[in-house]
Write a protein that binds this DNA or RNA. Structure first.
Lengths: 141, 141
DNA sequence: TCATAAATGATAATGATTCTCATGTGCAAG
DNA sequence: CTTGCACATGAGAATCATTATCATTTATGA
């Protein structure tokens, strides 16, 4: 139950928060903008303010329920934190996003940070390229 | 000479562009915001518009003279492209930025992209952590 | 020198995000 | 089951970085 998740991280259980969280869980889109969440809920008949969406997302992020990404040039997208850590590769033509995890890179990052005298707390790795998917070649071929 | 650099990439040689480029070359700050460049030039007595700074930076980037970075949450910074490619590690406490290059990671990225059916064209890797520099421990205990 | 396309500066406009504030609501204590 | 109150909400204003507009100026090739 989503209310559990909220309580577990010390957030009050409110209607808007539940709606947002469950939308993130149900949605087929893994990465959603605040705006998109707002539009989806609104068009679903909910009464919710855009500011509330932003506030809730910020709290979810602080609580570790979701992660925030800045894919190149676009606006910020939010992603439900489930399963293990991963990074992203984005198609510069069609915008498709794939996820990946690579232990070699992960380990290497930690080593590099240490060598430079840092204690690694986070990282952001984004690859950009052209994908060979049909959608891509169809769209912009 | 900076005018050479501009001509070489097919840009008209104009006073604002020369000023911006030479500021980037002289500055001790490796990473500068458009705003910072604007302020520095203005306070140096130059008459220049902020819009011109943004326009020039966009062209320099397109021409490969500089690179654009989005360090976490902050505004966009620009960096003169000299020497080989590198990535960044940012201290989350004092904001210090160090650069590094790691062949293992670079190679690995290409492999991953290929495995996923992408032709890698670019990437952004940012590490975040706490540094152990004196400035950092002094500043934020 | 001249013509012309491109560049500039001032400022308005935009788009994403955050703030404000009056009102509404979850929830712990009674 | 009520109640009080701190916290959350919605609407819209405000902010911040960046981009567009437009009248004027300038670089450059003929």
């Amino acid at each position: 139950m989503e209310s559990e998740e909220l309580r577990n991280v010390g957030l009050k259980v409110t209607t808007p928060r539940l709606k947002i969280l469950s939308l993130l869980e149900k949605s087929t889109e893994k990465h959603m903008t605040a705006e998109a969440i707002y539009r989806q809920l609104s068009s679903g008949g909910e009464v919710i303010g855009l500011a509330t969406v932003y506030r809730a997302l910020a709290q979810f992020e602080a609580a570790g329920l979701i992660t925030r990404h800045q894919f190149e040039g676009g606006q910020t997208v939010f992603e439900l934190e489930r399963g293990p850590h991963h990074d992203h590769i984005v198609c510069v033509r069609c915008g498709r996003v794939e996820e990946f995890y690579d232990k070699v890179i992960e380990d290497r990052q930690r080593e590099i940070a240490e060598k430079l005298g840092f204690t690694l707390s986070d990282h952001a790795l984004m690859l950009y390229g052209e994908c060979s998917g049909r959608a891509c070649t169809t769209k912009n071929g």
